[in-house]
Design a protein around this nucleic acid. Structure first.
Lengths: 133, 133
DNA sequence: ATTGCTATTGTTATATTATAACTTTACATA
DNA sequence: TATGTAAAGTTATAATATAACAATAGCAAT
């Protein structure tokens, strides 16, 4: 990675970190235009891709949106819990579970290289968890 | 569901069943236009949504594509193994694993309602599994 | 420092995916 | 058959993403 790539990448990462909720690529572009009015989609998509490759950003497939990694540069196997009410996302890890998942898929000879695990539902604030019976 | 909705839905389902690989919504539209040249995206998207609701079709979020359920009208909790080489998708179940996944997410008070689990990698034909060392 | 090479970034345009908003039609029931 | 309702059709456009090429920055070798 050259020095130049750092600038856009760090700007994109900064935007994502300022928000706790997932942002679409165009949300990010919108914010970056405040600083650099001429920035175009490919620039941002490239930065997002690079950041995702480094584990600094994750793409939530089921939301078509991006979040900053909630941990430090995690290459780990993340599980995302997405609240369909308030939109917050919680990122968690369960290496044993991933291992088991890969084992299950491997039964048919499949060799996994990456995974997408996204749970939708209600977070503790929005769901019944927030209103103990 | 009225009788009318059946027609488009069964056509869409038939198209997906003729293919073993995932199709984009526009792939489906393309095929349906051979029969009904005037069919428009919303019609197909509505059919896909209804079929997905019935568990007859699944949307693969990480591919932006759709496949027919490989089982019978499964409401089950599916796990998809997607070969990044040949594009085939294998759908499998592991209720225990899903249960464990929900339990992990539930630790923070999250109440899951649906999930997306998609593994990418190489199938047995494309990966080393096909060429035993 | 200048030249030329390579990889990154910028730019333009456009492809792909998806849905909003409204009109028309089919069906159920009185 | 008139009428209400929900589904389907239609038009237009929104939202997401990438292809293709041009410009430029950084680097290496001299």
């Amino acid at each position: 990675m050259s020095k130049r790539s750092h600038k856009t990448q760090s700007q994109v990462l900064a935007v994502l970190r300022r928000h706790h909720d997932p942002l679409s690529a165009y949300d990010v572009i919108g914010e970056l235009r405040q600083v650099n009015p001429k920035i175009a989609p490919p620039t941002v998509y490239r930065a997002l891709e690079a950041l995702a490759g480094q584990g600094l950003v994750h793409r939530l497939e089921s939301l078509k949106a991006f979040v900053a990694c909630q941990h430090d540069e995690c290459q780990h196997a993340s599980i995302f819990a997405i609240c369909d009410d308030c939109g917050t996302v919680e990122e968690s890890f369960a290496p044993d579970l991933i291992e088991e998942l890969f084992r299950v898929a491997g039964r048919s000879g499949f060799t996994p290289t990456r995974h997408v695990i996204e749970l939708h539902g209600l977070c503790s604030s929005c769901g019944t968890g927030g209103i103990p019976a």
